[in-house]
């Protein structure tokens, strides 16, 4: 009787282990399909576009002649917009997260803010574009400028920055906070001297992941009036005379990489489609570079942290 029982238990275990294996294989297959599709798409684009990538491609303005057209205005525009986005979104987002995580009391207001932040992360980007058109362009008269675009994308990634920063802050063990208090630190000293430095790596990762999303956005930028043909660069931020820095570039008209690609893709001439693939390759390169920096910084900050 007991040996029969044992047999049954063994069979049962065997069966469950088989199901376990099948699920593992299934999971692996799903991952492969996803990754291979992505790799296939990227590879096809790189193969189409690599022949056009040359120094000239980076230093030429758009042109009606595909072989002369380049992405100078687009990549400079994208870089400058990203600078504005980062400067606006990171301090705001980190500050908001610190407030929500360390200061806010659990009450209706905090709940309300929290629900809003989570929901904002899911709002389609075109809605931010319309909001920015009404607010920045028409109300504040900021024009169809780099500043407007940067602020729009900053709004777009603000929820991402807030959520990741909050997670980073939450990951710091509570006994550290208590230890700081025990030594007489004020709340702000505790945050500034301990919590922020320890979570810096994760916060940075979150910010860069947010920026990587912003760099590929087209809809909100088109809505606020980014241009398609622009054959000059914004004013240089550096000047030869005092005070050596200039912010005129903030008000300059601009275009960004995704818009340049969109325009080239919709042209009849097949040569332009190659340009679009090349620009896409560069854009993916820029995104990968940003993510690479994020990973490296996280490693740099985390390698010494052992709780």
């Amino acid at each position: 009787m007991s040996s029969l029982n044992l047999e049954e238990i063994r069979r049962n275990i065997n069966r469950r282990q088989q199901i376990n294996k099948i699920f593992a294989i299934l999971g692996l297959l799903v991952i492969f399909v996803a990754i291979l599709t992505l790799l296939g798409l990227i590879l096809e684009m790189v193969i189409d576009g690599h022949s056009r990538i040359s120094p000239d491609f980076f230093t030429s303005f758009p042109s009606r002649k595909p072989e002369k057209a380049g992405i100078l205005a687009a990549w400079v525009g994208t870089s400058l917009v990203m600078v504005v986005t980062a400067v606006a979104a990171v301090p705001l987002g980190v500050a908001a997260a610190i407030y929500l995580e360390e200061y806010a009391r659990k009450n209706l207001l905090a709940d309300l803010i929290e629900i809003n932040v989570t929901n904002l992360a899911g709002v389609p980007s075109i809605v931010y574009g319309l909001l920015a058109l009404g607010l920045f362009v028409y109300q504040f008269n900021l024009g169809e400028s780099i500043l407007t675009a940067g602020l729009t994308l900053a709004l777009l990634i603000l929820p991402v920055v807030i959520v990741t920063t909050r997670e980073a802050l939450r990951a710091i063990p509570n006994n550290l906070r208590e230890a700081a208090y025990a030594l007489g630190a004020s709340k702000w000293q505790m945050i500034w001297d301990h919590i922020l430095p320890y979570s810096f790596g994760s916060i940075l990762t979150g910010a860069i992941v947010g920026l990587s999303r912003a760099i590929g956005e087209t809809a909100p930028i088109i809505t606020i009036g980014a241009l398609t043909f622009i054959a000059f660069l914004p004013d240089s931020p550096l000047r030869e005379e005092f005070p050596y820095i200039s912010f005129a570039w903030l008000q300059a008209p601009f275009t960004v990489m995704p818009i340049q690609m969109f325009n080239w893709v919709s042209r009849p001439n097949a040569e332009f489609h190659i340009n679009a693939a090349a620009a896409g390759t560069v854009l993916i390169g820029m995104t990968l570079m940003m993510n690479g920096i994020a990973i490296y910084l996280r490693y740099l900050f985390r390698k010494d942290i052992k709780w």
């Binding site: 400079v76 870089s79 660069l233 004013d235």
Partner: peptide, 22 residues
């Protein structure tokens, strides 16, 4: 920052006329 700064040549547009088309 320096890369971006260097990449953006000193183009002074203040004195230039801009024609806006859409």
């Amino acid at each position: 920052a320096a890369t971006i700064g260097l990449a953006v040549p000193a183009v002074q547009s203040q004195s230039r006329t801009r024609i806006k088309i859409d």
